[in-house]
Write a protein that binds this DNA or RNA. Structure first.
Length: 945
RNA sequence: GGGCGAUUAGCUCAGUUGGUUAGAGCGUCUCGCUUACACCGAGAAGGUCGCAGGUUCGAGUCCUGCAUCGCCCACCA
């Protein structure tokens, strides 16, 4: 077998990710390991990657996504499941349009200067630049995705999927066009869905304005105002020009006699009625609401209930329109100032109170959003939501962590229709056409040939009558077929069904999340019944951040069920938000971001992956700091050096791995480490199945460092170097355990493990796998479990620790060998066998294993009492009687407290009668052990005098 | 106004069905350049598990209330 041109050279003293990662990745990719390997007998495992926006480079949130998904993918690949990870990129309509517009602005251009076609070309150039950058970044992170399957949301396939889904929804009556109150971003100049509006708390004012009540009319027919007023409280005085009524609560006695009368709007001099509606809170302000149905959703509803007209007083750029009389043309905030000033001058402003309020802003540009009436396309949600609620309730889709299911259900149960049309140029153009020949008078066209020229607005026929050709309209205009009949078609129609040939495609595009909702199956070929779709759909796991459950996850579930009849995935795994070390959200503009590639450059991808996956539990936010990544890097280095040692031991030869349970007379430490690594594999398997990926990684870390490196390797050194190297070689076990560790760790730290494994595998007999990435993942089914070995070894370790502890406390020079005794009856044989390890590891020479205290010197000796063994360390010259007494007394106090605790528990009748027998037995055993230790400690103290 | 999460060692976090004396990393202290690793090794110190009740033989873990912080949802102008 070949290897990744890798470790033919000597292993460096410390692991260098930069010298490894790109080469190893290239090896995997060249060998085609990322492509699924078919195995009809196994259940396929498929993840479709959440497509990052083409707006720019990956941030650390993407690194977490890649890490989690790559761990799952690599794990399943190693389990032998046919495994596919589909990568992709999102066109991100509004976001990408904004970045490209910003770029244009630097050249002093707007998109209108270029025109729609040219602008789209510019965006495609942007895409062409960033797609490879993004793909390369995924590679740097180690993502083992099948790059031959990479999809862009504006590729042919997804385009067809979008048109097909739109058509199906429309034909089923689930997409409709209508004039509704929507969120409008005056800067992006487009409608937004409710989810694209962020709510911010802002200090504002409550302006109290009084409207004079009308009392009959003057001789000239103009309304005559009485010296009575209705005072309203508003946060938006500028909208008073759009008021159509003043509303009070029908139960409010203060205003009962006013309902039915009219008031006169100052300045505008429009007479509007006083109406009653339950929605008015009597306690708020004056209990009187000015009703502005054109610019407030609550007011709109009131107007609908009471039967009042809607008045739009704003242009799409948030300046006031001609309805605003003297204020026409002013920006909304300028108008606010002028209007407040005017009202004050005219004596209509009663007072101003500071008032905290929440305000909606555009997610993309943070401009304050304007609620206004507009013709848009909507998806009717309730019918789509019902089955999507069922799949979660019935457990056909599982949420990890579970708590997010409630969040999902709560939102789904209160779902509202989705405004899907966007007045943008970048995106999936709505597959709707209007027939100019037939509906020319029912289409409003906005024609603009030059940017600086004011647009011409009229019906299609009116513009044609002015000499503007159909082609010019197609090129330079936007239009909306307000009352025209939409022709919905998957393919571009040649002519309308009734014959008209001048067709104009709807100029709006779809919300980016519309195509995102189709992602799990549009990437696999839907609507065509492709082999990929058959094989991989429904997918296995959808992994993404909990912050887009509504925006994305819910829509995939609804659209998946609707379009394919199946839930698009069986598990939703949600990760948290990665913050910087100060707990701040990452933000490019605030400069609080962490560049994942920079972290990879400094510490290596493995270190970052280990850190990301172990830094918090599933669904929880985390903080990423250099300090933590350093720990990950250190771990990679530790593993590297452990491997370096093992490989050096093996030298030029090869090793045959153990293939059966070690015999009972095999060395204790062999039986111990084999049992431990077996238990580790079983535990990791369990954690992985529960999606506790971080816990799995931590466990391997703990094992590699604190058991394999600290103890087994140290003991193996003694075995290999001792003069009595006649015993069995530790090499097979050393190699075997290292191999297990590499396999278990590979999904988390793929680079360093593959690099080491390639070097190791060449020295192993009986390994027929060609690369770790496709090697079998251990599941702890080798049958090496040995509880007795684990217990005995633990005791041996405790003996070493006890001696080290005494040495440190008594300040014995580190290099000096001292004499020590291990007194034990039952464990004599085991201690004798392990004596040479204890001697080396604790710097003891000699260790005398004796059966009774009488055989050990008691004068000027420190004592440590363990379970079944007492350690005696003679300290002639270094001994301090008082210190030793104090040491023993402290230990006695601790152990006595423990004994008392257990005694109390065991003498409790309730405990004895109600606790399970197993627990009682455990407590009894513990008490016996603690008492034995206590006896030993007391005897030791007594002997000191 | 609802909902969710967090609160465990100086710091950042684990602790997944309730059951030994609650763990890790980093930091701190004392030693040690011992031929895998100073990105290391040995030893140590450090925690009333936010507060108050409750359930239980037994609670960091379950229940109730409260506090602080954070997030999400929501039409009080």
């Amino acid at each position: 077998m070949t290897q990744p041109d890798a470790t033919s050279q000597e292993m460096a003293k410390s692991y260098d990710p930069r010298a490894t990662e790109d080469r190893v990745y290239e090896f995997w990719e060249r060998r085609g390991y990322f492509k699924p390997r078919p195995d009809a007998s196994k259940e396929p495992f498929c993840i479709v990657m959440p497509p990052p926006n083409v707006t720019g480079e990956l941030h650390v949130g993407h690194a977490l996504t890649d890490t989690v998904e790559d761990i799952l993918i690599r794990w399943h690949r190693m389990l032998g499941d046919p495994t596919l990870w589909v990568p992709g990129v999102d066109h991100a309509g509004i976001a990408t349009q904004n970045v490209v517009e910003k770029q244009l602005a630097k050249e002093g251009l707007s998109r209108h200067d270029l025109g729609r076609d040219e602008f789209e070309k510019r965006v495609w150039q942007w895409v062409g630049r960033y797609r490879p950058i993004i793909a390369n970044q995924h590679r740097k992170l180690g993502a083992s995705a099948d790059w031959s399957q990479e999809v862009f949301t504006l590729d042919e396939g997804p385009q067809l999927a979008v048109r097909t889904a739109f058509k199906k929804l429309h034909d089923d009556g689930l997409i409709y066009r209508g004039e509704r109150m929507i969120n409008w971003c005056p800067r992006c100049r487009t409608a937004l869905s409710d989810l694209e509006v962020e709510h911010e708390d802002q200090p504002g004012n409550l302006w109290y304005i009084r409207y004079p009540l009308v009392d009959g009319s003057d001789a000239d027919g103009k309304p005559h105002t009485a010296d009575e007023y209705m005072t309203v409280a508003t946060t938006r005085p500028e909208t008073f020009v759009g008021d159509v009524a003043v509303a009070v609560n029908p139960k409010d006695p203060r205003y009962a006699d006013k309902v039915g009368r009219t008031v006169l709007l100052p300045v505008i001099l429009r007479e509007i009625p006083v109406v009653a509606d339950e929605a008015i809170e009597m306690e708020f302000g004056t209990g009187t609401l000015k009703v502005t149905p054109g610019h407030d959703p609550v007011d709109f509803e009131i107007a609908q209930r009471v039967g009042l007209p809607t008045l739009n007083v704003m242009n799409l750029d948030a300046t006031l329109n001609t309805e605003a009389g003297p204020y026409a043309g002013m920006d909304r905030y300028e108008a606010r100032q002028v209007i407040v000033r005017d009202l004050e001058e005219l004596g209509y402003l009663v007072k101003i109170e500071p008032h905290e309020m929440t305000i909606g802003v555009c997610t993309r540009c943070h401009t304050v959003v304007e609620p206004l009436m507009s013709w848009q396309w909507f998806v009717s949600m309730s019918a789509l939501a019902a089955p999507a609620i069922d799949v979660a309730r019935e457990g056909r889709i599982a949420f990890v962590p579970e708590r997010f299911e409630h969040l999902y259900l709560n939102w789904m149960e209160n779902i509202r229709d989705w405004c899907v049309s966007r007045q943008l140029w970048w995106g999936h153009r709505i597959p709707v056409w209007y027939s100019a020949d037939e509906d020319g008078d029912r289409m409003i066209v906005t024609y603009r040939e030059h940017v600086d020229a004011a647009p011409l607005v009229g019906t299609y026929n009116e513009l044609r009558a002015q000499g503007i050709t159909h082609e010019m309209i197609v090129e330079h205009a936007t239009w909306t077929g307000i009352e025209a009949t939409p022709i919905v078609s998957i393919e571009t129609p040649e002519r309308s069904p009734t014959g008209g040939g001048h067709l104009l495609q709807e100029t709006d595009v779809l919300d980016t999340w519309f195509s995102s909702g189709l992602w799990p199956f549009s990437t696999l070929g839907w609507p065509n019944d492709t082999p990929d779709l058959k094989r991989w759909y429904p997918t296995s796991v959808m992994e993404t951040g909990y912050d887009i459950i509504f925006l994305w996850v819910s829509r995939m579930i609804m659209m998946g069920l609707y379009c394919t009849g199946e839930a698009p995935f069986s598990t939703v795994y949600l990760h948290g938000t990665v913050r910087n070390e100060h707990g701040q959200r990452m933000s490019k503009s605030l400069g609080t971001g962490v560049d994942p590639l920079d972290v990879v450059e400094r510490f290596g991808a493995d270190a970052m992956r280990y850190t990301l996956i172990t830094s918090s539990g599933p669904g929880n936010d985390m903080r990423l700091s250099d300090q933590r990544v350093e720990a990950g890097r250190n771990f990679a280095n530790k593993l590297w050096n452990a491997a370096r040692f093992v490989l050096a031991m093996i030298g030029e030869g090869t090793v045959r791995l153990p293939d059966r349970m070690p015999a009972a007379d095999a060395p204790l430490e062999d039986r111990w480490i084999l049992s431990r690594v077996e238990g580790l594999a079983r535990s990791v398997d369990g954690q992985m199945r529960k999606f506790e990926l971080g816990e799995a990684a931590r466990q391997v870390h703990e094992f590699v460092w604190a058991e394999f490196a600290d103890w087994y390797i140290e003991i193996a050194k003694v075995r290999v170097r001792g003069e009595d190297a006649a015993g069995p070689s530790p090499l097979p076990v050393l190699a075997y355990v290292l191999d297990r560790c590499l396999r278990l760790l590979h999904p988390v730290m793929p680079f360093v493990t593959e690099e080491i494994w390639q070097a190791l595998a060449r020295k192993l007999d009986g390994v027929d796998e060609e690369a770790l990435i496709v090697a079998a993942f251990p599941r702890g089914e080798s049958g090496y479990h040995d509880a007795a070995a684990e217990r005995e070894m633990e005791l041996l370790i405790d003996v070493v620790r006890a001696i080290r502890n005494i040495r440190a406390e008594k300040k014995v020079e580190p290099a000096r060998f001292i004499e020590a005794y291990a007194v034990s009856d039952e464990q004599r044989e085991m201690l004798a066998a392990g004596a040479r390890y204890i001697e080396t590891l604790a710097r003891v020479k000699p260790l005398r294993v004796v059966a009774a205290m009488a055989e050990a010197p008691r004068d000027q000796a420190a004592t440590a009492v363990l379970e079944g063994v007492t350690v005696i360390v003679p300290l002639t010259g270094l001994f301090d009687l008082a210190a030793e007494q104090a040491r023993l007394q402290k230990q006695i106090a601790d152990v006595e407290a423990e004994a008392t605790r257990i005694e109390t528990k065991l003498s409790n009748e309730q405990f004895r009668s109600r606790a399970p027998e197993k627990i009682i037995a455990v407590e009894q055993d513990r008490l016996a052990a603690v008492r034995a230790r206590l006896d030993g400690l007391r005897a030791g103290l007594a002997e000191l005098g």
